[in-house]
Design a protein around this nucleic acid. Structure first.
Lengths: 115, 115
DNA sequence: TTCCTTTGTGCGGGAATATAGAACTATTGA
DNA sequence: TCAATAGTTCTATATTCCCGCACAAAGGAA
């Protein structure tokens, strides 16, 4: 197999380019919700690999990578390359400023659902 | 072509069976959001056909039927057969009682997005 | 430098989901 | 009985998602 394309730069939409549709689609998958909550709870940015265990099973790396891409391109997280890792942090504050109680309501509803 | 299956009964989940995941998935499609908003705004239950025009184009009937099915099975609307039509109404109150500000936050965010 | 290790990405095939045209069901009304 | 209307099911096609595998990119060791 011959690779034609090299690794693409990480895409982070500007706050204005973030859409409700994108947020809802990203958070309609419970795996991504768990990743986002984990990132939000960590006191310093963590690598993707830290979130490989979801509901007692190990996610394949390529799947994990796709989930991070969806969260990133929806504007929910920011990822910075630090050496060989990505350091991920939430864009919670920006989203709250632009979309009001939306994100909080979604995360609260998921949290309440797990009793 | 020979049809093996007859028309299935309409499925409405109980309030307890409604999930955040299902709600977010259903509302991650702007067409379904517009349908839901239309149903919520109408002062009496309307037929599906009333929502065939979306963003200046006419949706195929089969597509519209699928969108209504997704909304119904996510627990967002209730559909009752009245003769040859369905009469659709929202389950807004039930969802607010179970999920707090979730649905309001989503609909407000979409509304704010269209300036 | 060169090699090895680690973290994450690009590609491709199969599975699952979505779209829409056409045939069909089910009901009403003439 | 027939025609019209509203919505559903079937089917084919298109798109999206999942994941194994090969690879990229960076760091560390010798």
């Amino acid at each position: 197999m011959v690779y034609l394309k090299t690794m693409r730069p990480l895409i982070h939409p500007s706050v204005e380019a973030i859409t409700v549709e994108g947020i809802l689609h990203a958070l309609s998958d419970p795996v991504r919700v768990q990743i986002l909550v984990g990132i939000a709870k960590a006191e310093c940015p963590q690598s993707c690999a830290k979130y490989q265990m979801v509901e007692n099973r190990e996610l394949p790396k390529s799947t994990l990578s796709q989930h991070f891409k969806v969260l990133r391109e929806a504007g929910l997280i920011r990822s910075e390359r630090k050496g060989v890792e990505l350091h991920n942090s939430t864009r919670y504050a920006e989203i709250c400023e632009r979309f009001g109680p939306l994100l909080t309501a979604i995360l609260d509803a998921y949290a309440a659902e797990r009793q």
